[in-house]
Amino acid sequence: MNVSIIGATGYGGGELFRLLYQHPVFNIHSVHTTRDEIPLVEEFPNLNGLTDITLKNIDPEDIAKHSDIVFLATPSGVSSKLVSAFVETGIQIIDLSGDLRLTDGDEYRKWYKHEPVNDDLLSKAVYGLTEWNRSKIKETRLLSNPGCFPTATLLGLAPAVQENIIDPNIIIIDAKSGASGAGRSASKNLLFSEINENLKIYKVNQHQHIPEIEQQLKEWNHSVAPISFSTHLLPITRGIMSTIYVKLTKAISTENVIEIYQEIYKDSPFVRVRPKGNFPAINDVSGSNYCDIGLDVDERTGRLTIVSVIDNLIKGAAGQAIQNANLMNGLDERMGLEFIPLFP
């Protein structure tokens, strides 16, 4: 099957190319950008000697004529315009931006500061949190890939929310990300001198992933109240750690919570639930499509601490997009993604 990537010069697009390059079924037919038509290797020197593919301008009809799937790795506000053009062609669309994630256009306008796509397109888009939406993903041709923070957070929270073992009114999320999560555009805040040997909070109570997380939590439990969600920038390249604090509604042991999580995720090959007393670090999943989860009940306070880690560029973006593309085309969701995390 031929695939095309739009937005191939960013970190997400580059990671899509790297992963799709070795996929046994998907063949990279073309890569596209709104910038100059240059060899891709000029943007990604790690591809030197591996490909002579050249960046091309965007022509939806021509792309749809030669490819079966198009991945949109473009900034929010750009994908919405492209989706409208691609839908008419019948090609499978996987959007990695936030443009299709919120079902309420007014909410999108409020948090993303762009005009939303029309309601008809929003209603057709399937939210691609793979482990929790497989049946719909298999049937769709228009998929909205989740954000990186929501992926780590929702995978960590889902079993507790679904099993009603926590108070839906008190959910506190302390999330930290590597610098690649901010994209590849130049920014003073991302200068080496600004982030090295530093840790800082950003977008306090204003992060655009807040409504995405709340929207999914409310689908699982209508009683979920607004969450407290804080994001911090780590002086590392890639990775996310989401540490979540919730109040239990009944007395339950750490062992029992772990059993619940292990049972729920037993058929999810990329979610690994740690045994008691064992907590994941970002390096444990770096360079992989895994999400590792650690759990602990504090009997003194009646709270459950959930630690969820992912590689933001893979499970939080390109890897999950390919996992969803596999399902959309009747393939094993693990195909092209079964690589061991880097260590150290």
Rank of each mutant, 00 (worst) to 15 (best):
M1L: 02
G13P: 00
G13M: 00
L19P: 11
S30P: 10
H32R: 01
R35K: 15
D36P: 06
P39F: 13
V41F: 08
F44K: 11
N46P: 05
L47C: 03
L50S: 06
L50G: 03
T51P: 04
D52R: 15
L55G: 12
K56N: 13
A73P: 04
T74W: 08
P75K: 12
V83S: 07
Q92E: 11
D95R: 14
G98S: 15
D99I: 10
K124S: 08
A125P: 03
G128N: 07
R134P: 02
S135Y: 13
K136Y: 07
I137F: 04
T140W: 07
R141M: 05
A160T: 01
V161A: 05
P168F: 09
I171R: 04
A179Y: 14
A179R: 15
S185K: 15
A186K: 15
K188C: 03
L190H: 08
E194N: 14
K203V: 06
H207T: 01
W220K: 08
A225M: 10
S242T: 10
Y245M: 09
L248R: 11
L248I: 09
L248G: 09
K250N: 15
A251M: 08
I258C: 07
S268C: 05
V271T: 15
R272A: 12
V273Y: 09
F279M: 10
A281G: 13
V285N: 02
V285E: 01
S288V: 04
R303N: 15
I306F: 02
V309E: 03
V309I: 04
I314K: 02
Q320N: 13
A321K: 06
G330C: 08
D332K: 11
